[in-house]
């Protein structure tokens, strides 16, 4: 674990976005391999937008890094997570349906331009998190979260 994170005490996070936050030990997620391209080994999930389905995955190692995420199963009823045997073993969850699951969100001014990355979800099991590669058909890097109103 990062030496700046005490697993037995609350962490005070000086978030560039949200100001000073106190993160309890049980709310710290450990990323043994970090987020791809962003690194960091400790993150937390912030519910700054209650009721919207959006969470903020905030780094505890870098106060500038925060990504909006959603649980894909909340938005896509037909979402499937399919992992290689190695990835499944790395995640540690016997039953993936019982694990927490998030995907990163590319926000945009127009909601119909917002996309999520279903190809590389983040699986959380017992407070350990891994960004994995989803090999399920249709699990693309950019999938529109909302459809245009006239497409319904």
């Amino acid at each position: 674990m990062n030496s700046s994170i005490d697993p037995t005490a609350a962490t005070v996070l000086q978030s560039l976005r949200f100001g000073t936050l106190t993160i309890e030990p049980e709310d710290v997620l450990e990323f043994p391999r970090g987020l791809i391209g962003l690194g960091g080994h400790h993150y937390t999930l912030l519910d700054r937008n209650p009721g919207t389905g959006f969470w903020w995955l905030h780094s505890l190692d870098d106060p500038a890094i925060a990504l909006p995420v959603v649980d894909p199963r909340s938005f896509f009823h037909n979402f499937v997570l399919q992992l290689s045997d190695d990835e499944h073993e790395r995640v540690g969850a016997g039953d993936l349906d019982e694990a927490q699951l998030y995907v990163t969100v590319r926000t945009a001014p127009n909601p119909v331009d917002v996309v999520v990355n279903l190809r590389a979800p983040i699986v959380v099991w017992e407070r350990r998190a891994h960004q994995v590669l989803n090999t399920a058909p249709g699990a693309d890097l950019q999938v529109r979260l909302f459809a245009p109103a006239d497409a319904a």
């Binding site: 919207t52 938005f75 009823h77 037909n78 909601p111 999938v143 909302f146 459809a147 109103a149």
Partner: peptide
């Protein structure tokens, strides 16, 4: 919260089902 889209701001997703 307004900066993030909410399901009520757009119609259900077309490519995949939306809650």
């Amino acid at each position: 919260a307004d900066a993030l889209p909410t399901p009520s701001q757009a119609a259900p997703a077309g490519k995949a089902d939306q809650r």
